[in-house]
Design a protein around this nucleic acid. Structure first.
Lengths: 183, 183
DNA sequence: TTAGGATATGGAGACATTCTCCACTTTGCA
DNA sequence: TGCAAAGTGGAGAATGTCTCCATATCCTAA
């Protein structure tokens, strides 16, 4: 796919770890024991920690594709939407994709700074949308992207135990977005 | 003070645990090892766990006085303020009091359900203010108290690493309160 | 005052998790 | 094909949570 810089066997192991982690995160949330991830991936603990030094690094890696899709979908949609709508939709999708596994939300702030392509894409797209909405005069000038990430992660936390997160996410994003608007 | 139902020695130990916990939480955040709290309180681990079965229970206990003051101050202030202002002020103070130690904010939702007098006072006062603001037509009808707790904890999380939280709390409360308002 | 039931205690240790270290294996280039 | 570089597994050290129960302490009723 892309230049990994890893030896072939190492890259194979890396993929096995990602598959095992994704499975376990889905089954039992983002707090499962990392040794257990290693075990399911049939890899030693050392191998896992060498490749993903922290839980957040692993979460960033398993979230990579989802985050990339969110950013790409937003870019694709962009031309048609008004600046405000585009930002709003983006926030909602980001919040939903931060609720895919239990306990991921609490780490969003840390995870998103991990420099994986998906995380960078989210950051860039978010900043772009924010900037654009400000320039169009629909969003208050004093909003930072950090503020947004933080509120989105709180929304995802709040919604975490709900059996049907979608409507509540919509409601809370609505609230947040409403507050960001210029009156 | 009030009927604790505990034997005199047990009550003494309980107080020592609270003092030690408050100190350590202030120094090193809400995630310090509970065995270490026990050690500083000069109490066995068993004693600590018997009195406070979970970390959240201990956090609810150490937060009890602060939460009580917030609720009382709000009640006292109430007569003078407009419904919107009263709620807004309450949110700001609750957020500030949820930032007193590192990592408390993430547990606010759980902590607040712990049935200590302070937690109950916050819940009751918050619900009352919300109701009143809705009746006055200043706040959207679809806001729940849970939403408010979520918003406050988001703000507190956002502000957690800041050295000077007060202005940022004000900004974020402003933002989210704005979102809650009826247009 | 004191006996004795009720209450409370400490801290060793079972268990879980994180993370490191290094003797050994595998890879892939020259 | 040989060998340096890259990678590996998993034992075990370090840390934290939480339980269990022999022992100690309280407090009441006689």
């Amino acid at each position: 796919m892309f230049e990994s810089g890893l030896r072939a066997d190492a890259e194979r192991n890396r993929q096995r770890i990602l598959v095992a982690a994704e499975e376990l995160f889905l089954e039992r949330g983002a707090n499962v024991s990392l040794d257990e991830v290693a075990k399911r991936a049939k890899v030693g603990a050392g191998t896992l920690y060498r490749r993903f030094p922290t839980r957040e690094a692993l979460l960033a890696a398993t979230s990579n594709e989802r985050f990339t899709s969110v950013a790409e979908a937003s870019l694709a949609r962009d031309a048609d939407d008004k600046p405000g709508d585009a930002l709003r939709q983006f926030l909602e999708e980001l919040a939903l994709n931060t609720s895919v596994y239990q306990s991921l939300a609490a780490s969003l702030g840390t995870v998103i700074q991990h420099g994986t392509p998906g995380c960078n894409a989210i950051t860039e797209e978010g900043q772009r949308l924010l900037q654009r909405a400000k320039e169009a005069g629909v969003i208050r000038g004093d909003m930072s992207f950090d503020d947004i990430v933080c509120v989105v992660s709180a929304i995802a936390i709040a919604v975490e135990k709900d059996s049907e997160p979608v409507p509540r996410v919509a409601h809370l994003v609505d609230l947040l977005f409403n507050g960001m608007r210029v009156r």
